[in-house]
Design a protein around this nucleic acid. Structure first.
Length: 555
RNA sequence: UGCCUCAUAGUAUAAUGGUAGUACGACAGAUUUUGGUUCUGUUUGUCUUGGUUCGAAUCCAGGUGAGGCAACCA
């Protein structure tokens, strides 16, 4: 079926290059994160693209950390990034760091100075910005632009030697201060930062700018196809210029539109704010769009890979409906998750004509989509808990659940008829009284009655309890980043609803973190690492499709 | 008012000069001991104006709209 599919534009480029014998048909891509945050769903697209493309054409993919800014980078992030990539199902060929190349990059800089293509500038940051011009006006040459090669060499060596404080000097490439592309107006190559680096420690006090590190790092690794997001399109001429002047391996950059998901944000800066300001409980809070959060919430790696595949690749900006992600996980869990019964918002139901104290072990199917999943026993008795929303005092015409006079089937058990109910002083239903049809036993129904509704239940005397965490979208609006004002003012106040005591089948006491279930009629749930023996915690991964909820909303 | 990208159903994404298709969504129906799943059907689209051509979503030109670019961030 993959032969039937048309190629995306990157695959077309790769196939053309292979056909033309570029690099002898060798394909090497790379995934280049900066270790200053956790990976999110947008990175998943990039990872799937880079690793997927290489895999499809018998190539490989490097993992390279672009760690050129010591102040924002930490080992914690390196570890989480590696874990997330592996969890997604990919293995890199080489693990590299831009900081591995600091000495080489320094040499490249010296070479450009020697060629008269770079100079040390003593101007302040403000002065450089002022001389840069604007998109519509050309910039002005720095007064330091025409220093001799010898002087530049000496000053650059002195920069490295730590003779100057932060910000005193920078090394700039000498291109054209009037270039219409702002990135070509003598861009900075090196700045002075007396800062401790997570890998090189205090060995350096000058650090290369991203623009002077990224392209050359690709070149050093002999990356054939350097795939990145659209905002780097205007940087490409600069990278090509460096490669040309340095006479090094010609990696080529190609750009695609980053993935954006609605009802969330995918910017590391914003995610960091949500974490630091405690709007969520850490990077892996299941409401976050990070991979660690999706993992904790119960998403599978394959569902995310499928999603990345289905959103496609193009150069136009897009905002993907989170409903597609939800479809991908439902599609998979429908086939793989065992069904169990859990009552999240319980109300007591008494079967008046079923003997008090009597029990039955009923046969329950684990997964109707997978016969090999087998069966289990569930205990039935005269006092049950059912879902509060499965009863209505005054039912509308299409309500196929319980209401005085109406009949439903209890899943795996009997058909019952609602006879009466009790209410407390506040009008809340406290107990529902029903009678059952003994001849309607599941699997051997001789009652001749068919009912429209089937509801789930647990036996009150046999049920165990669990904490259940229900998640909703983190933001109230589709695109918080594009709204007026602070994006945090659009946070959905009901994004987390904790149920401290839901009733579950007792067998669910033994579950392990990471296990996934379908709570019948309620959704897919995953066991949270916060679970302790005898007190499981379940995260709702995603609800089931609920056409009744839609119908009810219509009125 | 400079440079660079981009523009196909509600959302994504195909068609690479030759019948505008697919997925998700929405709507309707069938099946169903999950209002789940599955199945069937319906709906909705080439930004605009010219040009080239037997023929244009596709090529060309102008317009319109959206996004990006002026961090000692990446």
């Amino acid at each position: 079926m993959s032969e039937e599919r048309s190629l995306n534009f990157l695959e077309q480029i790769v196939e053309e290059d292979i056909a033309n014998g570029v690099h002898g048909g060798r394909i090497l891509t790379r995934f280049p994160p900066e270790p200053n945050g956790y990976l999110h769903i947008g990175h998943a697209k990039s990872i799937c693209l880079n690793f997927g493309l290489a895999k499809k054409y018998n190539g490989q993919t490097n993992l390279r950390f672009d760690d050129t800014n010591p102040v924002t980078e930490e080992t914690e992030y390196v570890d989480s990034i590696k874990q997330d990539i592996q969890w997604l199902g990919f293995q890199w060929a080489g693990e590299f760091y831009a900081s591995d190349y600091f000495e080489q990059l320094y040499g490249f800089a010296v070479k450009l100075i020697e060629k008269g293509l770079a100079y040390v500038d003593d101007s302040s940051a403000a002065e450089i910005a002022a001389m840069k011009g604007t998109p519509t006006e050309p910039g002005k040459n720095s007064p330091y632009r025409d220093r001799s090669v010898e002087e530049n060499l000496q000053l650059f060596a002195d920069m490295r030697a730590g003779k100057f404080p932060d910000g005193a000097k920078v090394l700039r490439a000498k291109l054209d201060m009037a270039a219409p592309n702002m990135h070509l107006r003598d861009p900075l190559m090196y700045r002075i930062k007396h800062a401790h680096h997570h890998r090189t420690g205090d060995a350096w006090c000058i650090y290369p700018m991203y623009d002077f590190a990224h392209g050359q790092s690709d070149s050093i690794e002999q990356i054939t196809h350097s795939i990145c997001t659209l905002e780097f399109v205007p940087h490409r001429p600069l990278y090509d210029w460096f490669i040309e002047k340095l006479e090094i391996f010609p990696s080529r950059q190609y750009e695609f539109a980053r993935l954006a998901l609605n009802y969330t944000v995918t910017s590391k800066r914003k995610l960091l704010q949500l974490v630091n300001e405690k709007h969520v409980n850490g990077w892996d809070d299941p409401r976050m769009p990070t991979l660690s959060a999706y993992r904790r919430r119960g998403y599978t790696p394959s569902s995310i890979r499928t999603f990345a595949d289905r959103v496609g690749v193009q150069k136009r900006d897009n905002l993907i409906d989170v409903g597609l992600l939800e479809f991908c996980i439902r599609e998979e869990l429908n086939k793989t998750a065992n069904r169990v019964m859990a009552v999240l918002d319980p109300v007591k139901l008494v079967i008046t004509n079923y003997p008090e104290g009597q029990t039955e072990e009923l046969q329950a199917e684990n997964n109707p989509e997978d016969a090999s999943a087998g069966h289990r026993k569930v205990t039935f008795s005269n006092t049950l808990y059912i879902e509060r929303e499965d009863f209505m005092e005054n039912a509308p015409k299409k309500f196929f659940r319980l209401s005085p006079g109406l009949m439903v089937r209890l899943k795996y058990a009997y058909i019952i008829k609602c006879d009466s109910f009790d209410k407390d002083a506040d009008g809340n239903v406290t107990t529902i009284y029903c009678s059952y049809l003994p001849e309607s036993h599941s699997g051997s129904d001789k009652s001749g009655i068919s009912v429209k509704g089937t509801i789930h239940w647990v036996s009150a005397a046999h049920a165990a309890t669990a904490e259940v965490r229900l998640y909703d979208r983190l933001f109230k609006v589709e695109n918080p980043a594009s709204e007026e004002g602070d994006f945090k003012s659009y946070i959905n106040p009901d994004s987390l609803h904790v149920i401290p005591r839901a009733y579950i089948e007792p067998a669910l006491l033994d579950v392990q973190p990471g296990e996934r279930f379908q709570f019948l009629r309620k959704g897919y749930f995953a066991v949270d690492p916060d679970s302790t023996p005898g007190k499981p915690v379940f995260n709702r991964t995603v609800t089931l499709k609920d056409t009744w909820a839609k119908e009810a909303k219509k009125g």
